[in-house]
């Protein structure tokens, strides 16, 4: 598959094109991490994150690619790995002073929300993640989910979101996060 075809397919939200890309550059990209004091596991993680960044940019139409896909992915991997190395060294320095101060409340809220999202039906889950994470257009959402048209997708998205809001708010008040 050529870059152009990959881009076209991804921009429509075709996840098999992502699989293809993943395999195609796996070794090239994981090498960046492995040859820079990373493990295979870390390499995989970084490459997956880079691909997801790429995916999101292409699906949402926020990417004008002037280079080859491989070059672009390479630079994302490099940046992500630099950040990770940075974070690691900072962590080891700070460990002595403040033992981890994770935002417990934030974590708990996210946990509740994830629970609520998983209570939604499959279509709702897809519509909302496609819209809020992928930044997919309503037209492509309708296409991918086999909905009649953009308006159907919009209505469906609105209903799903309302349902999620209600679920979250009912659980939030039960957990006393809101005053």
């Amino acid at each position: 598959m050529k870059d152009q075809e990959i881009l076209e397919r991804i921009s429509k939200g075709d996840e098999t094109a992502l699989d293809y890309l993943y395999k195609k550059y796996y070794r090239m990209m994981s090498r960046i991490v492995i040859t820079n004091s990373g493990t295979e596991e870390e390499a995989k993680d970084i490459y997956q994150e880079a691909l997801i960044v790429f995916w999101q940019k292409v699906v949402s139409g926020n990417l004008v690619l002037t280079s080859k896909i491989s070059t672009f992915l390479y630079s994302i991997c490099l940046n992500l790995w630099r950040k990770e190395l940075d974070r690691k060294s900072r962590l080891s320095r700070e460990e002595k002073d403040n033992p981890e101060s994770m935002d417990f409340e934030q974590e708990e809220r996210l946990r509740i929300i994830t629970e609520c999202i998983n209570e939604l039906g499959d279509t709702c889950k897809k519509i909302l993640t496609y819209f809020y994470f992928d930044g997919m257009s309503m037209q492509n959402i309708a296409l991918n989910l086999g909905l009649a048209n953009t308006d159907t997708a919009k209505t469906k998205k609105y209903k799903c979101k309302k349902r999620l809001d209600e679920l979250v708010k009912s659980k939030y008040s039960a957990g006393d996060f809101l005053d």
Binding site: L110, I113, T114, C116, I117, N118, K125, T129, Y132, F133
Partner: peptide
């Protein structure tokens, strides 16, 4: 938070 949760999922 909800958007963050959706992203995470």
């Amino acid at each position: 938070d909800i958007i963050k949760g959706l992203e995470q999922v």
